[in-house]
Amino acid sequence: MRRLVKSFGYAVSGITYTAKTQLNFRIHLAAILAVGLAGWYFKLSSAEWTCIMLAIGLVLVAELLNTAIELLVDLVSPGFNAQAGKVKDIAAGAVLVAACISVAAGAIIFIPKLI
């Protein structure tokens, strides 16, 4: 049981590190707050909340993985390396794809409520 509690502590530490050091992660957190308030205001259905939560989770996981990949690349390749740069670009691209999917899901849910 102690190992389980410690592993949760490590995970929270990783999330905290990302929130403190990554501007984009903080931007995503602000967007989550805005979407949450909008969802509350528009009284989203359970299905709509489920879609929103999945979209939020997708973006946050992508951002956390991107941060981990960037740190690992910097560790194994501290100097300039074109291949290392491509790895970082691809990881950032994954975040962009996740964010675009989330924006599309949000648009599908919120635009009809605004019209």
Results as ranks from 00 to 15, higher is better:
19 A>I: 03
53 M>V: 08
55 A>F: 02
90 I>V: 15
34 A>R: 00
62 A>E: 07
5 V>I: 15
52 I>F: 04
56 I>D: 06
26 R>T: 12
56 I>N: 11
100 C>V: 13
67 T>E: 14
51 C>A: 12
71 L>V: 02
37 L>W: 07
26 R>V: 11
84 A>Y: 09
59 V>L: 04
66 N>A: 14
80 F>E: 10
63 E>A: 15
86 K>M: 15
68 A>R: 06
69 I>K: 05
27 I>G: 02
70 E>G: 08
73 V>E: 08
58 L>Y: 07
80 F>H: 11
28 H>E: 12
38 A>D: 01
69 I>P: 04
99 A>Y: 07
27 I>E: 12
4 L>M: 07
68 A>C: 02
89 D>S: 15
96 L>A: 10
44 L>G: 08
103 V>R: 01
19 A>L: 13
104 A>G: 06
4 L>C: 03
103 V>G: 04
70 E>Y: 07
59 V>W: 03
15 I>K: 00
75 L>M: 00
79 G>K: 13
43 K>Q: 15
52 I>D: 04
67 T>Q: 13
40 W>K: 13
103 V>Q: 02
70 E>A: 15
27 I>K: 12
57 G>W: 05
21 T>P: 00
97 V>G: 04
91 A>C: 10
58 L>E: 13
105 A>T: 14
101 I>L: 14
15 I>Y: 10
56 I>V: 13
30 A>L: 12
47 A>M: 02
32 I>Q: 06
78 P>S: 12
78 P>H: 08
24 N>G: 02
25 F>W: 08
23 L>H: 09
61 V>Y: 14
30 A>F: 13
52 I>L: 12
14 G>Q: 11
7 S>V: 06
13 S>Q: 10
47 A>Q: 10
30 A>K: 02
91 A>I: 05
46 S>F: 06
46 S>T: 12
84 A>H: 10
47 A>I: 01
43 K>F: 03
49 W>C: 00
101 I>Y: 13
81 N>F: 01
57 G>V: 03
29 L>K: 08
77 S>K: 10
34 A>M: 08
17 Y>I: 02
46 S>V: 08
69 I>D: 09
97 V>W: 08
61 V>A: 15
47 A>C: 00
45 S>P: 02
97 V>K: 01
76 V>M: 07
74 D>R: 06
87 V>Q: 11
5 V>C: 04
10 Y>Q: 13
100 C>Q: 00
4 L>V: 11
51 C>W: 02
91 A>W: 09
37 L>G: 01
43 K>A: 13
63 E>G: 06
33 L>D: 05
84 A>I: 11
12 V>F: 10
74 D>T: 03
70 E>R: 11
77 S>R: 09
26 R>W: 04
41 Y>C: 01
43 K>G: 06
64 L>M: 14
36 G>V: 06
20 K>T: 10
25 F>T: 04
26 R>D: 04
101 I>E: 11
59 V>D: 11
34 A>W: 03
32 I>G: 07
32 I>D: 13
88 K>A: 07
31 A>C: 01
39 G>D: 10
39 G>H: 08
20 K>I: 05
